[in-house]
Design a protein around this nucleic acid. Sequence first.
DNA 1: TTGTAAGCGTTATCAG
DNA 2: CTGATAACGCTTACAA
Lengths: 338, 338
Amino acid sequence: MLRTPRPTMRDVAERLGVSVSAVSIALSERKGVSDELRERVRRTARAMGYVPDQAAVSLRTRRSRVMGLLIRNLQNPFFLDVVEGFDRECSAAGYQAMTSSARYEPRHERELLDAFAARGVDALAVAPIGPGRAVRSWARRTGKPVVVLNGSRAVVDSMHSLRIDGPQAVRLAVRHLAGLGHRRIALLTAPAATSPDPERLAAFTELMTERRLEPLVIESALTAHAAEAVLRAELRRPRAYRPTAIVTNSDWIAYAVYAAARAEGLRVPVDLSVVGHDDLPTSALTDPPLTTLRADRLGLGRRAARILIDSLDGPDGTPVRELLPVELVERASTAPPG
Amino acid sequence: MLRTPRPTMRDVAERLGVSVSAVSIALSERKGVSDELRERVRRTARAMGYVPDQAAVSLRTRRSRVMGLLIRNLQNPFFLDVVEGFDRECSAAGYQAMTSSARYEPRHERELLDAFAARGVDALAVAPIGPGRAVRSWARRTGKPVVVLNGSRAVVDSMHSLRIDGPQAVRLAVRHLAGLGHRRIALLTAPAATSPDPERLAAFTELMTERRLEPLVIESALTAHAAEAVLRAELRRPRAYRPTAIVTNSDWIAYAVYAAARAEGLRVPVDLSVVGHDDLPTSALTDPPLTTLRADRLGLGRRAARILIDSLDGPDGTPVRELLPVELVERASTAPPG
DNA sequence: TTGTAAGCGTTATCAG
DNA sequence: CTGATAACGCTTACAA
């Protein structure tokens, strides 16, 4: 195959008999070249199939036009829409998104952070695994804008923060279940070290205690596989001890609760009520349809990108702190305890 | 904030009182420097938090260590696992994956192709929207390895090709439904211009005709939203005309069929049987559980990455052509016609 | 309005 | 084994 090497700016300049800098200027928005030349340059550049080499541009300008997006775990479809929203907003603004999953491995998270730094992403959105020390350190080292997604309150610093209102979600869930007559309600949560959101747990115990209910806490790594195993063990306990309702932090994990209940011969909602979180498109179609807390996933991604773009444009001062609302969607996975 | 600029190779060299090239060699695998110096260099580089600037490395070496992954539409959770598999294999081999969604817009696909070229990705995996002319041209222009995912047979050329066996999937579905007694079976497919997979349609009409059944073809853009609208119209037709079963090309779209059926007051499978494709994790949990064709999504992503990595390592000759098997998973969304 | 030249941080070639 | 030196393709003062 005759592999013609990509034309460079010099090739374009030579073809037109002008200097490289003239081409550079003509191709950019800057003025310093006649309209006529600019037009000619653009035309031939396009005709030759010239595309500027981003590596060279990045090296020279110290901007890569890449936005990093670092996700805890891309298995959860929740993040699909976050990625989508982020990507759309970025590409509309002329940036390309680079998304990676830390797979719930702190070590891999660190590696990716380094990779993003090495690649010189212009800014970073990150849903950290744990309390987010690594992320804070990244922000300090690079001096680049960072927005933390669904991080714990403690993580924030000089970084932007964008969170879905987890505590409120838990309260809505508990009130709903308590209203149905549940007393032994369990919160399914990640082990403290990897939990990005201790506030959820705090809100849970506080409200449960206040209402004189029995707060149960089930700790599990938040992969579908791990959660299902832990839950099966939990659901095998005698009826009087096991929870009559479970509150999860994602629909994705709620599905694992369904699977565990099914495997243990328990019926939802008769034997066990389940509350999800996110309102994935599939959650209206499951058997039974899932009661959950709706959150604007696409909007989360979009907003994250927007915040970064804005703080790249005008490096104004104060970090953004935003809390996105949630809304209870009652379906058939919750009912009075059987 | 005291934003210390990232240390460069020169900083490391100066700190040690050696030349830049000594540091470069020491930090690479190449020999040409004493073991003792290499060790010292590595230590101080790490201590200083030195990370090589990828823009500079790329510019110099003409390799970016980035693998592009271009997806038709990232809304479909099918691709989540493909992305995951691709990403894992890449990062294990020291590459970083850069994933983008064309959102079913040919124009955006072209833009992304250009962006990937400009960024100098080392290789590209792509699930093209239509017949894939743009992709073929990309492969020729760049001379980089390309693997086409689930493209039509025609797309392949000097590119690698990795496909889930669509025709076989359709045949398994039709046989299953015919066995249940269905005669008016519809295939839901993308409009020809954007269909990457005309072979599915061909296999469908061929088998239906052979069995003297009535092949119905429903064309729709393959977003959940568009499909639901088209299907509602279809299902409103008089009972004698509308299909008793629908074969889709993804579980994701099968869910849209569920939604459309529900909206039109039809029951699955009593009034309408549905066959999906992919066996998403959620498909066992829907109401009713979805009969579908299982495919190894993670494996698809992994294999794609592997093929690219291999052809980067040893640029041996012949393009890979692989067909991944599918397997019918019978659940409750299919039954004899009511 | 246009051209010249320096330099971004690396790697690679070639002397010492 | 080590150290200058020249690219890689681009942007941007600055000079013409």
